[in-house]
Each structure stands twice: as C-alpha cells, then as structure tokens.
C-alpha cells in the first residue's frame, strides 16, 4: 500500500478522454475512453464509458469500472485483460444512467473561512491501481487552483465547502498537487490518531 506521504501521480480526468484502453496480457487496444463517470456527492470516480477503436468508432456497450483499471498513464489506460470490460447489466447503475449522479461542474467553491475561490471546472485523478478522485480543479477567474478531496468536504446544490485544514494544501499547479494531496492526507491521519 502506498505511504500517505508518497507524492501521487495525477492526471486531469478530462485528459483521460480519448486515451486507448490497452490489455497488458495482449497488447491490444480494445476500446477508447469516452466519458468520465463521477459522483460529486461522494467525490468518487465510478468509471468510464467507452468508444470503439478504429475507423468506425462509435459508442461501445461495454463499460470500464474504476476498480478494473490497472493503471492510467499519459498514453493509455491499462487493463489486465479484455474481460475487465464490464457489460451494462453487471456494471454500476450510475454508469448506465440507472442511478442519478450529482454533477459538480460549475459548483461554487468556498474556503473554510467563507472566501469564494471560484467554481469547479474539473476532477483530478490519481493514476494508481485502482485510480481514484483526489482533487478538484477550481476556476478562479484568474487561472486555476487545485483543492484536495477529503471526507470533510461538504457539498450542497449551492456550494462545495472546503474544510479549514485544506487551506494550506491548495496549489496552482498539477505537478505540485500530488505532494500537496499526500501531505494533506498525512495531516488528516495525524489528526485522527491524535
């Protein structure tokens, strides 16, 4: 298990769209990432919808659950085998539209002291196995900042309210955000054990 202080390798969820899904056991591109399925209420990555590969690409019925991903890299999403793609009848209901999802894009983001930071414009994923949502990209109107996800985040139809402890871990570059998330988690663990 990864140490909470180990910097995470991160990727913006929007950058995963269009990547090929490649099997480790076969070296075949069996699908292409279409859309991210993300639940804003639980701040959780559910999985991805898929397109076919090749000239006649169109939507693929199969889906890819987050737990079935071996790794997300800058050039491909890796699965162990083609059998890791899930048929709709055995997929998470949120991936087939049978369970409504809370959309978080555009939600106003407030710091713990009530200061408005901006609005959510993206989700940041860790690339490990399985990948997970670890932060939000926030459009400040003057650029973007990244805020870490934690169980202490509060969300409503109006706002995403950050815990006060997150204030020191808001950064303006994705490269440094991996270390910030690791540090934030370490701080939360220290607080829980104190």
């Amino acid at each position: 298990m990864m140490d909470s202080k180990t910097p995470l390798r991160l990727v913006k969820a929007m950058d995963v769209s269009g990547l090929p899904v490649v099997t480790v056991d076969g070296g075949e591109d069996v699908a292409e990432i279409k859309d991210v399925v993300f639940d804003g209420a639980s701040h959780r990555l559910i999985g991805f919808t898929l397109n076919k590969r090749g000239w006649f690409r169109g939507r693929l019925k199969s889906l890819l659950g987050a737990g079935d991903i071996q790794a997300i890299g800058p050039d491909a999403v890796m699965v162990s085998t083609e059998a890791d793609l899930t048929e709709p009848d055995s997929a998470h209901p949120a991936m087939t539209g049978d369970e409504p999802l809370v959309t978080i894009d555009g939600t106003r983001v407030l710091a713990g002291d009530g200061t408005e930071l901006g609005s959510v414009c993206g989700v940041v994923l860790s690339t490990g196995s399985p990948p997970a949502a670890v932060g939000y990209e926030v459009d400040t109107g003057d650029g973007a900042v990244f805020v870490p996800i934690s169980a202490e985040l509060a969300i409503s139809d109006d706002n995403l309210l950050l815990p006060a402890a997150a204030k020191d871990f808001i950064v303006d570059d994705l490269t440094g955000f991996g270390a910030a998330v690791a540090d934030f988690r370490a701080k939360l663990e220290q607080g829980a054990s104190a």
Binding site: V22, T23, V24, D25, G26, G27, E28, D29, A76, M78
Partner: peptide
C-alpha cells in the same frame, strides 16, 4: 516483456 499485440508490446 508482458505481451505483444497489434497496438503495442507491453
């Protein structure tokens, strides 16, 4: 080497 396919050698 893990595999060789039409897309890549993994």
């Amino acid at each position: 080497i893990r595999s060789l396919g039409s897309f890549a050698v993994v």
